[in-house]
Amino acid sequence: MTSSATTLPSLRSLCVEIHAGVAEVQLLGPSKGNAMGPDFWTELPSVFEALSDDDAVRSVLIYGSGGNFSYGLDLPAMAPVFAPLLGAGGMDAKLREGFRRQIKALQDSVSSLARCAKPVIAAVDGWCIGGAIDVIAAADIRISSPKARFSVREVKVAIVADLGSLQRLPSIIGEGATRQLALTGEDFDAARALSLGLVTEVADDVVARGRELAASVAANPPLVVQGVKQVMNRRTQNSVQDGLDYVQVWNSAFLASRDFGEATAAFAERRPPVYRGE
């Protein structure tokens, strides 16, 4: 990282560089497809809190490495989060409350983009799946390459999406489109993302275009720019937080299901899952 004001410990899942008022945050993995493991969830809020407080930073660009934004939640790496609750069959109230707090911590990590005083631009190339949709939904501007592919895929692995997409997407793409994408878990391409308004433009060199947009934002009066973000966030922040709080309770009660166990087993065995509504 290059900045006189921002200091961070060594990072494993992210690379941060600051030049001419623009902070670039690159997802590194280390899992395949920049999948989001424990390091990511710890480092993301630390980075965005530091950038929010750094007066040298006027805008932030976030993008992935290796040709993808992110495959989303790294299920194998995050298994220890789910294992105790699943092992108890969801019957231990203390474990359920601990799990609710873990969901809240992950939500707060994603929300660090929305809380950041500086506008955040997400540049999407390749796959942007599940938890990655939550992350870009918390950004202020989203753009993509023609090769970008998206999916609100949690329903496919027996999870109610709980990190912000169900709360933020309706104000971005509309209620009906959000319901369709979240209930089907279908993949969709950059052209559809553009038509829905999930992204505002498609660019062949999406990172270069993201840098142009970030520089354009950074050239404007910083307090005014921050004021625009604060005023616009005010429109939805209470309803977003209410929804996040509700889904914490829902998933702490219902995620420990036989269907979720089947989803994780099918993922490990690379076979289609068979869901029974149990």
Rank of each mutant, 00 (worst) to 15 (best):
G89S: 03
D140M: 04
D125R: 13
P84C: 03
A122G: 13
E175Y: 12
A114H: 07
Q107V: 01
V135C: 04
I136V: 14
V135A: 11
R96Q: 10
E175F: 13
D134L: 02
S145W: 03
K147F: 06
A132H: 04
V157K: 08
K118H: 13
D140T: 01
L85Q: 06
A132P: 02
A105S: 15
G89F: 08
R153V: 09
K156R: 13
F150W: 08
Q180K: 12
K104C: 11
I172S: 01
I172H: 00
V160F: 09
G164M: 02
A122H: 08
K104G: 12
P84M: 11
I133F: 03
C116R: 09
C116D: 07
G185V: 00
E175A: 15
G185N: 04
P146M: 05
L183Q: 15
L106S: 14
R96G: 00
F99M: 02
G176W: 11
K156G: 00
A122N: 06
R101Y: 01
R149S: 15
K156H: 10
L106M: 14
G185C: 05
I143L: 04
R96A: 06
E175D: 12
V110T: 06
K147P: 12
S144F: 02
R101M: 10
S112C: 05
A88H: 00
G130A: 15
S151N: 13
P146E: 05
L169V: 04
E97T: 13
A114K: 03
V155I: 15
A148R: 05
D92L: 03
K147D: 13
A117V: 06
I173Q: 00
D108V: 03
A83G: 11
L85G: 07
E97D: 15
R101T: 08
A182S: 14
R149M: 13
G98C: 05
S151A: 15
S111Y: 15
I172M: 01
A93G: 11
G89M: 08
P146T: 05
I143S: 03
A148C: 09
G89Q: 08
D134V: 05
L85I: 14
I129P: 09
T184C: 07
P84D: 05
V152M: 15
G176H: 12
Q102F: 11
K104F: 10
A148M: 08
A158D: 03
L166Y: 02
L163S: 01
V124Q: 01
I103G: 00
A161F: 06
G185Q: 01
G98I: 12
G98A: 15
I143G: 01
S111V: 09
K118D: 09
V135S: 04
A182K: 07
M91V: 10
G130M: 09
A105R: 10
G174S: 09
S151V: 13
G98W: 06
G185F: 08
G185W: 07
L181D: 04
